[in-house]
């Protein structure tokens, strides 16, 4: 891989590593983007489906804070948040979801297939669990080539019951590979609550079957998540092998845009929103005097203006030319079949 991040991407990434305010800004940016994307759907600007991650911002931001730009990340179809956290711009993400040329893959992938290899993001996976063994392979590559890169396999609780989870964790363990498995347990696999599909409460318990260290982490508190990720990543980078981190979190929206999440017990959403990741970090920053309450509102307004501008630019962008459809199927070939 010879692709390098743009200066904007580098700047977006490095700022978050250094500053808790930047992490706060990014969480707000993700929230505003996700709300905007759902609105764009309602307004008829987007086709197909989309899966938003309001409420799960802290996990994505924590991963991007800890991962080095040369590390690899495999991510799910609920991937806008992680893509933004890792450094893709709102224009690249929203443009992609709108299917426009300014999108990160020029509109070829859409909402479920964001991509940014220059920032370590492999094409995001629309098959539950598929990214887990691929992350193991990225770690194998680092190991064989004598590099210190770490792979982050990020997936939801639903993936913990698919074969790829078991096979991937088992392989990583027997080969002692530098992978951090990050399970975002948002309590729902599609429309089904986890207690209907899974006989244990803590998915982290499954790591014991692979002789792998694990931790249950408060995924609503970005600082706690960063701490757990830092320890697991250092272990991986120093030859200590893989770790399974279970981030307890919550998906405010339904599974996809058409899902109103009527299956949730009444009050559950309120309980989780009382521990909103943006609220937790914002209060902490104000309480410790880093910034003032006014600054929080200012940040929100600035982000809204920026995202609105990105939406305008994306909507003004054309679709890529039709020739793009036939490009990059295989090396050198433009169409299947003929010479």
């Amino acid at each position: 891989m010879t692709v390098t991040p743009t200066s904007t991407q580098q700047e977006r990434r490095s700022r978050m590593k250094e500053s808790p305010v930047a992490r706060y800004e990014r969480m707000v940016e993700i929230r505003v983007c996700e709300d905007t994307i759902l609105q764009l759907f309602r307004d008829g600007h987007v086709r197909g489906s989309t899966h938003t991650a309001q409420g799960q911002e802290a996990v994505s931001v924590a991963i991007a804070t800890i991962a080095a730009p040369t590390d690899w990340v495999t991510c799910t179809y609920r991937g806008h948040a992680l893509a933004l956290a890792l450094g893709l711009t709102p224009l690249a993400v929203i443009g992609e979801i709108l299917g426009r040329e300014v999108g990160c893959t020029r509109g070829i992938g859409g909402s479920m297939h964001l991509c940014g290899p220059e920032i370590g993001l492999l094409p995001t996976f629309a098959i539950v669990g598929a990214g887990i063994p691929v992350a193991v392979g990225a770690a194998l590559s680092a190991s064989v080539r004598g590099r210190e890169d770490v792979a982050f396999g990020v997936f939801g609780d639903g993936a913990a019951n698919i074969g790829a989870f078991h096979e991937g964790l088992n392989l990583a363990a027997i080969w002692n590979l530098p992978v951090v498995f990050v399970c975002e347990n948002n309590l729902y696999g599609e429309y089904s609550r986890i207690d209907h599909t899974t006989p244990i409460e803590d998915l982290a318990d499954r790591a014991a079957s692979y002789g792998m260290p694990s931790e249950v982490v408060d995924g609503q508190d970005v600082d706690t998540a960063v701490q757990a990720l830092r320890a697991a990543t250092e272990r991986a980078r120093n030859g200590g092998g893989p770790t399974l981190l279970e981030m307890k979190t919550y998906r405010y929206a339904g599974h996809s845009r058409t899902d109103e999440a009527t299956y949730r017990p009444p009050g559950e959403l309120d309980v989780w929103q009382a521990r909103d990741p943006i609220g937790i970090l914002g209060r902490r920053l104000v309480d410790d005097g880093t910034i003032g309450q006014d600054d929080l509102e200012l940040i929100r307004r600035e982000v809204e203006v920026m995202v609105e501008a990105a939406v305008e630019e994306a909507l003004a962008s054309p679709e890529a030319p039709l020739s793009e459809m036939l490009a990059h199927v295989t090396a050198g070939a433009s169409t299947a079949g003929g010479e």
Partner: peptide
Amino acid sequence: PERVRDTPISEMGFIGAAVGAAATGLRP
């Protein structure tokens, strides 16, 4: 053994790992 590896009976796992390795610098 670094370059010639026995795998468990686990095709989804090791084909997936081969895909990930191929995407990130190896030719498995």
